[in-house]
Write a protein that binds this DNA or RNA. Structure first.
Lengths: 246, 246
DNA sequence: TGTACATCAGTGAACGCGCGTTCACTGATGTAC
DNA sequence: TGTACATCAGTGAACGCGCGTTCACTGATGTAC
C-alpha cells in the first residue's frame, strides 16, 4: 500500500545513491574535465568498489549522458525561472533577465557549462534523450520573442528594414519560427538566432579565457551586448532604466 | 661554412622529425581529442620508441603548446591572407573575406579549432608564448576596422547613435582601441568586440553541433550574420553585390 | 504474522589494456686540432 | 685530410600508476503465499 506515493527503502536508497554518484562525478568534472571523468575515481571517493557503479549506470557514457541532461536542465530551468520572475515586465526586460540568469549559471558551473557548450567529448555520441533538455533555453528565448512582437509599442522598424534572408536561411527561419516563435517575422527570427549564438559565444569566450586581459571583468561588456542584441531582435525599448540591475 | 644558411644533416633531420611528430599528433587530435593525446601513441605511429620523443619535446604539455601555437598561427595566417588578397576592396568586403577565411579554416581543421577555441584542456596552463599568436585574428579585424572608419563614404550613423558604454567597458574599449584600432570611436570598438565574439560563437555552435537540425547547413546563416555584424561595427555599405561569393 | 523464495546492491579479484617519464646504453654525426 | 673527442638521436627496459568492464559471490531487502 501507499505504492506510487511511498517508495520502498530500496527505491529510496537507489535514488539517493544515484544522486550522490552524479554529484561526485560533477565534482570531478571540475578537477579533471569530462574526457577524464573516471568511474573508478568516483567510486573510490564514494567509498564504493568500482564495479558497484554498474548497478546504477550501465557504462561510463551513460553517466556522462546523465550529467549532460542534468546540466541542460539546470541552465534551462535557470532561464525559465528568471523569465517567469519578470513576468509582465516587457519582453526586453525578460530578455535581460534570461541572459543574466544564463550567465550566472554558467559562471557558477563552469565545468558543467563546458560539458554542454564546449568541445564535444571525443568518442561520445549524445543520445536522442539530450535533445529536448538542450532546447530549453532556446524555447525560452523564442517565447519572449513572440511576446515582444505581440506587445504594443514603437514598431521596431530597424529589425524589419533588413535585406532578404539569403538562400536556405529563409526556409530554415520559417521552420524555427513555426516551432518556437509563431507570428514573428523572418528577419527578427534570424536576428534571434544571431543573438542566441552570441549569448553563448560570449559566455564561452569569457569562461574559456579568450577575453582574458581584453574585457575583464566582462560584466559591463555582457550587459551592453545584451542591449545591442535586444535591438537586433527587435524587442521594444522599455520605459524603465536601460541598465540591468546586474 | 654556409653556417646559418645551410643546416647540418642533424639540424635538418631534427626540423623534419619535429614536424612529423606534430603532424602525427594533429592526426591523433582528430581521433581522440586534446585531453587524450598520447605521446606513446604518437611515437608508435611514427615507428619510434616513446622515450625518443623526449629529444624533441620535454613533456606532453610542451607538445600541446606547440600544437596550440601552430593552430593560432594557421588561423591567423588564413585571416591575414584573405584580407590581403582583398586589399583595396573596402573594409566591408575585407571583413567578409576575413570571416569566410576563418570559417573555412575552422571547418577544415575542426579539431585544431576545438583545441584553441573549445573547452580548456584540464590541467593545462597555456604559457605566455601562445598570447601573440592567439591575437592575430583580432589584430586583422582591428586593422580593417580602423581602415573602414578612415574610408570616405556614408557615415555609419547607426553605429554611433548608441547609448554610452556602461561602467568599466568605456575604459576597456579605450585600451583595445589604442592597441589595435586607433582612431575608431568607442561604440564601434564595442561593436567589434561583439562581432569578434559572435564570429567565433557561431563557429563553435556550428562545429560543436549546437546548430544541428536548426540551421544546417549554416553557410547562409553565417553570411547573413556577417553582414549584420558589419552594420554593427559601422563598416560602410559597399557598392558591390551584397552577397559574398561563398 | 511467518516462512520461502526472488530480487537486488555491493564485494573483491581478475582481465587486458594504456599512460608519462626516467635511465643507462649504443652508435651515428659534428667539431677542433 | 685524418684523428680524438664531444654531442646528440634513438633504444629498450623499467617504474608506478590508472582505467573500464566482467564475473561469481554474499547478504540484505522485498514479495507471495
Amino acid at each position: 500500500m501507499l505504492a506510487g506515493v511511498r517508495q520502498t527503502a530500496r527505491e529510496r536508497a537507489r535514488a539517493e545513491i544515484t544522486a550522490e554518484i552524479k554529484a561526485e562525478a560533477r565534482r570531478q568534472l571540475a578537477a579533471a574535465g569530462a574526457p577524464q571523468l573516471s568511474l573508478r575515481a568516483v567510486a573510490r571517493e564514494l567509498g564504493m568498489v568500482s564495479s558497484a557503479l554498474y548497478r546504477y549506470f550501465p557504462s561510463r557514457d551513460d553517466l556522462l549522458t546523465a550529467l549532460i541532461i542534468d546540466a541542460y536542465d539546470a541552465i534551462g530551468a535557470a532561464a525559465e525561472k528568471a523569465v517567469a520572475a519578470a513576468a509582465g515586465a516587457g519582453a526586453r526586460r525578460r530578455w535581460r533577465a534570461c541572459c543574466q540568469a544564463v550567465r550566472q549559471w554558467a559562471i557558477g558551473n563552469p565545468h558543467e557549462y563546458a560539458l554542454i557548450y564546449g568541445s564535444p567529448v571525443p568518442g561520445y555520441q549524445a543520445p536522442q534523450a539530450t535533445v529536448a533538455p538542450a532546447a530549453r533555453v532556446a524555447m525560452v528565448i523564442g517565447a519572449l520573442l513572440a511576446d515582444g512582437w505581440a506587445e504594443p509599442g514603437q514598431p521596431p522598424a530597424r529589425a524589419l528594414a533588413r535585406p532578404a534572408l539569403p538562400g536556405l536561411l529563409a526556409e530554415q527561419v520559417r521552420l524555427v519560427s513555426a516551432a518556437i516563435a509563431p507570428g514573428v517575422p523572418g528577419p527578427a527570427i534570424a536576428g534571434t538566432l544571431i543573438a542566441w549564438t552570441q549569448l553563448f559565444g560570449m559566455l564561452s569566450f569569457e569562461l574559456f579565457g579568450q577575453l582574458k586581459g581584453i574585457v575583464e571583468p566582462a560584466d559591463d561588456f555582457f550587459a551592453y551586448a545584451v542591449e545591442q542584441l535586444a535591438d537586433l531582435i527587435g524587442l521594444p525599448d522599455p520605459p524603465d532604466p536601460p541598465a540591468p540591475p546586474a
